[in-house]
Amino acid sequence: MLTRRIIPCLDVKDGRVVKGTSFVQLRDAGDPVEQATAYDAQGADEVCFLDISASPEGRSTILDIVSRTADCVFAPLTVGGGVRSVDDVERLLLAGADKISINTAAIRDPALVSRAAERFGNQAIVVAVDAKRRGDGTWEVYSHGGRTPEGLDALAWCVEMAARGAGELLLTSMDQDGTRTGYDLPLVRTIVDAVTIPVIASGGVGTLDHLADGLDIGGADAVLAASIFHYGHHTIGEAKAHLRERGLPVRIT
């Protein structure tokens, strides 16, 4: 039986991890490669880098980080942030990433998702969707790191992205992100029920039960979290043990 995945996400700016960390064993807590290696050792099912650099110089550092990570981390690696073209996707894959996450560029040019999926396979293309609640029980898609409303219905958008060849959806609730009060479970459930590709729930985790809720109540295939792991509140191993107690299938290493 396929197990549910736990994916720690590292926000990287100009080659450094932003949001602190209290991994005491690290020589350089700001080094994304060291952090990815530590998560790998803890048994993370995948690792995700989100590049939030604003400048081209900052962005160029992500390729080096990806290739240095691929040298020593033998677990799946997803990379997103600032991906604009099929060439960007290819550069990251050649550097050693397995899956590339596309967000704003997919909104500007939905056919980019089809072109990238045809070239590299659906399994390599993740579409990241940042969604925010509207008053009427639906959700709207936001771009540019959640700053710009796009007037797109999140449900229709996710269905379209799956049809265009996305192999997976990374679904972030803008309302919940940073609140530590749990995922937007109705959002997760709505999208999970509408598509046949895997969905990663993101945004709002504060406790281990939130992770379990995202998988159990939300029905997500994987859960992404940042601060709950970065600040040393919990290890990946503790999270897996908790999920197993809640009856969810997980890989214990």
């Binding site: 039986m1 396929l2 197990t3 549910r4 995945r5 099912d45 659906n122 399994q123 192999g167 997976e168 029920d193 046949t196 590709i197 895997p198 029905g219 295939d221 994987a222 890989r251």
Partner: peptide, 13 residues
């Protein structure tokens, strides 16, 4: 079953 996704993506036994 709808819960079984394609691609089959992740860790399996």
């Amino acid at each position: 079953k709808h819960e079984l996704k394609v691609p089959h993506m992740g860790w399996n036994q």
